[in-house]
Amino acid sequence: MTLAESRGIKGPTEREAEAEEVKEGAHPGPLEYVKIGLILAVITAVEVGIYYIEAIEDVLVPILIVLSAIKFTLVVLWFMHLRFDSRLFSWLLAGGLMLAGILMVIVLSTLGGRLV
């Protein structure tokens, strides 16, 4: 649980400064959200588009994974405000994701399954 020690948690003196910072950094405006939304829509369109291109069949899987990772990151950073919020939240999500991912890889590899 190195999470607990993460930078998200400060001593009482540092807390107030931190709290201020969080408020100031608040959230981006609607325009920025719409922009992100557009990017997400475009990536989705690209994903579906390249799905039908037979020429890149060999590299399709990595490309798809990268694209969906980008979508994931955009939603998490902007819509869920991790970019502007306490580090602790990012650590929590990253911890959950990494734990789930690592355990999944180990289990699959011992039972003869493959990730992709």
Binding site: G8, I9, K10, R15, E16, E18, A19, V22, S86, L88, F89, L92, L93, G95, G96, L97, L99, A100, G101, L103, M104, V107, L108, G113, R114, L115, V116
Partner: peptide
């Protein structure tokens, strides 16, 4: 931590949801 209780609770919940969906996706794969 200067963080709202309920927001922290929600993030903890989402962190643990990663394991829930991780298990389900793992079974599919």
């Amino acid at each position: 931590t200067g963080l709202d209780n309920r927001k922290l609770l929600m993030w903890l919940f989402l962190a643990s949801e990663c394991l829930l969906f991780g298990s389900l996706i793992g079974a599919y794969l």
